[in-house]
Design a protein around this nucleic acid. Structure first.
Lengths: 223, 223
DNA sequence: GTCTATATAATGATAGAC
DNA sequence: GTCTATCATTATATAGAC
């Protein structure tokens, strides 16, 4: 079972070629794109798409499934850092995976099962990563580590999504590597600054709010 | 020129009623929704929608324009704090504006001119707000205040978008107030924590990167 | 395995009656 | 001002030939 990725040079089967064309089109143009465009990209007839996948929805499912598998395989190959930028950068680094990454980005904007599943994975990864950092003494402990990991996943994934939305010219596999480097260059200094030195000069806002909400969301409180 | 908002109880003109129905539908179901559904919500025929707005695209433009006007009026009424949560909370506070806010959220997920314009406004607002905080001594100065404001806009807007994407049941005007309260409750402690105390225990990451990038982004830096 | 041709449904938009 | 009826286009999906 050679589940090779898209830009493999060689000949995947026709079904896989259609699926990869669909992933690329969906990632670039969104899920409203028609089967005609996908069929043309794959150099087959529209009918053949339906023949292999039953329906457009079936094709979507196959794309979701394949993207899921690619990500699992990649994560196994080199364990990621838990941040959205880290995960995406690792995937996009090998430029072959740019279509998959753009498909994930599109899914995250759209919502749905795949997006929810991948996001929960990100939260888990972030929680583990932060916990390891706390244990190593490089990350500050949190009153509510799980909530912090989730919020940081919201922020890091959401930030990339917003950046890409504001730079739509980069919704293309060919320029995605460049896009990611531009993103990282733009955000790294401010992010490191805030995460190292904080934003507020004193603790009044935090302490005021902690008085108002005496116990952290609970579950497993105190750091 | 009474440009009253949607839930006005009374009788806007038919054209305005169609526009408001469109804003609500677009916000709830996305911009792929058909004119038939909008017409039904407004209790008019599909033909009348086109009669007033020429085309679906014309209707979109009218919605964008109205949303823009509502936001300008509201911002004038009570100057916002510059954060996404602040802006949205203020708007959604009066539950009447929930459809407009959801329309904005949808636009931010979709991209386009309105999204770009509103986002740039958010960046400007955030920059002013942060600058005032620095002047007052409650916000730490930044090496690059404009970049920091932009990154915080990415994060705050993106965070809300991600949260709503992961909680699609709240893409409804009726529950939007509740949604926003839930969001704020979930993120406030971790956000205040990180923004007050930072995330890293030491300055090594920041300083290492600053050595690597001696001058702030600079506008024309060659890698 | 793959295509052409077509059925069926939904879309945005038009024309003209009332 | 508003509706009904309809058109033209596009979409997904099917059927059957090669």
């Amino acid at each position: 079972m050679w589940s090779a990725a898209s830009a493999d040079g060689g000949d995947l089967g026709t079904a896989a070629r259609i699926r990869d064309a669909a992933i690329e089109r969906f990632g670039r143009d969104g899920f409203t794109v028609g089967v005609r465009a996908i069929a043309e990209d794959a150099a087959v007839s529209p009918g053949l798409v339906v023949h292999y996948y039953g329906s457009k929805q079936g094709l979507r499912r196959a794309c979701d499934e394949h993207v899921r598998e690619v990500i699992v395989a990649e994560k196994r190959a080199a364990t990621t850092g838990g941040t959205a930028a880290g995960l995406l950068a690792q995937l996009a680094d090998v430029e072959r995976f740019a279509p998959v990454v753009l498909y994930v980005v599109r899914s995250m904007r759209e919502g749905g099962d795949l997006a929810a599943e991948l996001f929960e994975q990100m939260v888990d990864d972030a929680a583990r990563y932060l916990e390891a950092g706390v244990a190593a003494g490089v990350i500050r402990p949190s009153r509510d580590p799980v909530a912090r990991a989730r919020v940081m996943a919201y922020q890091s994934m959401g930030s990339i999504l917003m950046w890409l939305t504001m730079h739509p010219e980069h919704a293309d596999p060919a320029s995605f590597g460049k896009a990611l480097r531009a993103y990282i260059e733009e955000v790294t200094v401010p992010v490191l600054e805030v995460f190292t030195e904080g934003l507020y000069t004193d603790r009044s806002l935090l302490e005021e709010y902690l008085l108002y909400v005496p116990d952290p969301p609970r579950d497993g409180a105190q750091d």
